[in-house]
């Protein structure tokens, strides 16, 4: 397994280089360093000298990918791409284009992101599995029919709609929770209640249908029939046999996203004013802050790769028949 993980890690590095290059090219296709400077300096009377100075101080005065003035390796290394990318692999994120320490910001914001993402994820998985199991348990009854109908309706609705309706209902109409904001301590609960509930509900329809299909597929297999034949209760069949065997595809869809929870949610954090990494990324995109965008994309890709490796490992844990080689 160790050699497998090492091999995957090496592939991961190659993927990261590719993602970095792709982000870089995409970003600088739509933005020039001059645009970034003007937006970052801001305000009235931005002179060309100020723009040039801003670029020099941040190393954006260099060529993007190839420095024709230098020879040999320097032609490649004395460029914006090289200087801005290599340090990422040492997890040195440097300073944002507005001068702030990205590493510090990430450390500050990872907490609020996890505070929303973790309960949303955990409760989401729990609620979805429960809903799917209920539908399977009561299959071919009115509960199954209406459950599926409801799930189809729920998955057809945009998550933005849930947010807006949720904010209006629970904050404006019922006045139970704040419409947006964030605070530590006990106040955390009142700020997180709505985004977490909305986060769970928004995914419930799609995931419950998916899991229901998985459970149904399992419940039609021979071993389930055998279990029933030996007189096990429906509960025991579902929870002891079906759930355990259907856990493999569930693992695929859950463990892979686990590391991404650190990155928070772009939409949720933006709408609920949660100072996490999702809103940090959105702010950086709006401010054309390449330093932050590239750091977050790098982090996202790295975590995604970690997620995929973890999924593979979790297979071996969940199903002893699987061996990684």
């Amino acid at each position: 397994m160790l050699s497998y993980i090492l091999r995957r890690a090496l592939y991961g590095v190659l993927i990261l280089i590719g993602v970095n290059l792709f982000t870089f090219v995409l970003f600088f296709t739509v933005n020039t360093p001059d645009d970034m400077a003007r937006l970052n300096i801001g305000g009235k009377r931005v002179t060309q000298e100020a723009i040039e100075k801003w670029k020099v101080e941040r190393g954006y005065d260099k060529p993007l990918l190839y420095n024709a003035r230098d020879d040999g390796l320097r032609a490649l290394s004395n460029t914006i791409f090289f200087e801005r990318s290599v340090q990422l692999f040492a997890l040195r994120f440097g300073a944002s284009d507005s001068g702030r320490d990205i590493g510090y910001e990430i450390r500050q914001r990872i907490g609020p992101s996890l505070a929303v993402a973790l309960p949303t994820f955990a409760l989401g998985v729990m609620a979805t599995v429960c809903a799917a199991l209920l539908m399977v348990f009561f299959r071919a009854t009115y509960l199954d029919f209406w459950g599926v109908t409801l799930a189809v309706v729920m998955m057809s609705i945009s998550s933005l709609f849930y947010i807006i309706v949720g904010q209006w209902t629970f904050s404006t109409l019922l006045r139970l929770v704040p419409i947006s904001g964030f605070a530590g301590g006990w106040d955390l609960f009142k700020f997180l209640a709505l985004p977490v509930v909305i986060g769970v509900v928004a995914r419930l329809g799609y995931d419950a249908l998916l899991y229901r299909t998985m459970f149904l597929e399992e419940s039609g297999k021979d071993y389930v029939r055998t279990a029933r034949a030996k007189g096990l209760s429906e509960q025991a069949v579902l929870f002891r046999h079906v759930l355990r065997n259907a856990a493999l595809p569930i693992l695929t869809s859950t463990v892979a996203v686990l590391p991404l929870l650190f990155l928070g949610s772009l939409i949720m954090e933006s709408f609920f004013g949660i100072p996490g990494l999702g809103s940090y990324t959105i702010d950086a995109i709006n401010a054309q802050d390449f330093a932050v965008v590239r750091a977050m994309v790098f982090l996202g890709s790295a975590l995604y790769i970690v997620g995929l490796v973890l999924t593979d490992i979790s297979y071996t844990v969940a199903d002893p028949r699987i061996r990684l080689a």
């Binding site: 904050s171 006045r175 139970l176 929770v177 419409i179 700020f191």
Partner: peptide
């Protein structure tokens, strides 16, 4: 908790 406080939707500390 929310019911105990006068208002539940305050974005600030109690």
């Amino acid at each position: 908790t929310a019911a105990c406080s006068e208002v539940g939707n305050s974005p600030y500390a109690s």
